[in-house]
Computed example of a mutant assay.
Amino acid sequence: MFRKLVTSVLIIVVLAGAFAGWQFFTANTAFPQKSKYLYVYTGHATWPEVLKSVKDSDLVKSPGMLDLLATRLDVPEKLKAGRYEIKNGMSLMDITRLLRNGTQAPVKLIITKLRTKENLAGFLGRKMELDSMDVLNYLTNPDTLQQYGFDSNTVMAMIYPNTYTYFWNASLSTVFEKFYGEYKKVWTDARRDEARKLGLTPIQAYTLASIVEEETNRLSEKDTIASVYLNRLNKGMRLQADPTVKFALKDFTLRRIYEKHTQVESPYNTYRNMGLPPGPICTPSVQTLDAVLQPAQTNYLYFVAASDFSGHHIFTSTFGDHVKVANDFRKAQDVEQQKRAAKDSLKKAIY
């Protein structure tokens, strides 16, 4: 009788162990997606908090077994802050090893066009463990920017559209060191020489490229638009660039720039101020920068969008010719505006 009891207990123990082992080494994720992310926050990298996050996010089917395994393998003592990718089909052992080794999933920051420091701060705050206000303070702090050779007006000239890879909990200094590294890669000796021949510093060339970037998406016209602005600078004329007015007003939805808009008091308003604005108005592509550094050789001083709204521009050398094509474009804008107003009225009447 005693032997049967012992045998039964041993069988139960073996079966329990086998069941536990089965749970440890087989798929245990509880979500249908390809993967989910587990965030372990800096300063809050305690196992109870992480386990609560695992439960709240329905990451695994057996959080209690994960707790048991992780505790046995010293995860609570070795836990590091970070962003961990939990792939569908992972076992509890896979997840435990991931956390124990601190194997983070990198974050890819794909920067295309940003316009303001606030845009950059918000972008980093959404993608990383950075507080957007901390980023904004960094972008306006003379002491932190001086080491890179920028100030609060010019700091965005350090940012080039590209894909940057970081750990989710990377520090601000780490983030900006990589930005600065890309800046130095872009500004080769050849590009610096091209800027120098045009009488521009790298920051000024970037600033002009930012205006050209906002003027058109057509790469084929960017070097010609650049030539217009360079010609105006060389003649001591105001740039009178509409995108700088939008930037000054912080209203990027404006379809038309009226005289009332051009009266805004701002160092970025090139209708009122001579020369380039104090800093860039967006993050231009390297292709646009090259269009500025290698401008077309023209005597154009004016350009206006074509009245067929094709995205092309008409370039002129005299004010008289410019007035003619500008009037054509304004008339076309009036017609388009009337059409939009009629459509809006019809929608309101229907709904």
Rank of each mutant, 00 (worst) to 15 (best):
P106R: 07
P106G: 10
L109V: 12
I110R: 14
L114C: 07
R115T: 10
T116C: 06
K117C: 00
E118F: 00
E118P: 00
L120D: 03
G122P: 00
F123H: 09
F123T: 04
L124Y: 04
G125L: 07
R126M: 12
M128P: 05
M128W: 03
D131W: 02
D134R: 09
V135L: 02
V135F: 01
Y138C: 01
T140A: 01
T140D: 11
T144M: 08
L145N: 04
Y148W: 12
Y148P: 05
G149M: 08
F150N: 02
F150Q: 04
D151K: 04
D151M: 05
S152R: 13
S152P: 00
N153E: 14
V155F: 07
A157T: 05
A157M: 03
M158C: 04
I159Q: 06
P161W: 11
P161L: 11
N162V: 01
T163K: 06
Y166I: 01
Y166T: 00
Y166L: 08
Y166G: 00
F167T: 13
F167D: 14
W168F: 09
A170F: 00
S171H: 08
S173R: 13
S173E: 15
T174F: 02
V175S: 01
E177T: 04
E177C: 00
K178E: 12
F179H: 11
Y180S: 11
G181V: 00
Y183M: 06
K184R: 15
K184I: 09
V186Y: 08
V186R: 08
T188I: 11
T188E: 10
T188G: 11
D189I: 12
D189G: 08
R191F: 12
E194G: 00
A195T: 03
L198M: 12
G199E: 11
L200H: 06
P202M: 05
I203E: 13
Y206A: 02
T207H: 04
T207Q: 06
L208P: 05
A209S: 13
A209W: 04
I211T: 09
I211K: 05
V212Q: 10
V212F: 10
E214H: 01
E214G: 09
E215Y: 05
T216K: 01
T216V: 05
N217W: 01
N217A: 15
N217I: 10
N217K: 14
L219F: 13
S220C: 00
E221L: 07
T224C: 00
T224V: 13
S227L: 10
V228W: 04
V228H: 02
L230T: 10
R232I: 03
R232E: 03
M237N: 05
L239N: 09
L239D: 10
Q240K: 09
Q240A: 07
A241V: 11
D242M: 08
T244W: 08
T244K: 05
V245R: 09
K246P: 01
F247D: 06
A248C: 09
L249S: 12
L249H: 10
L249R: 12
K250Q: 15
K250L: 14
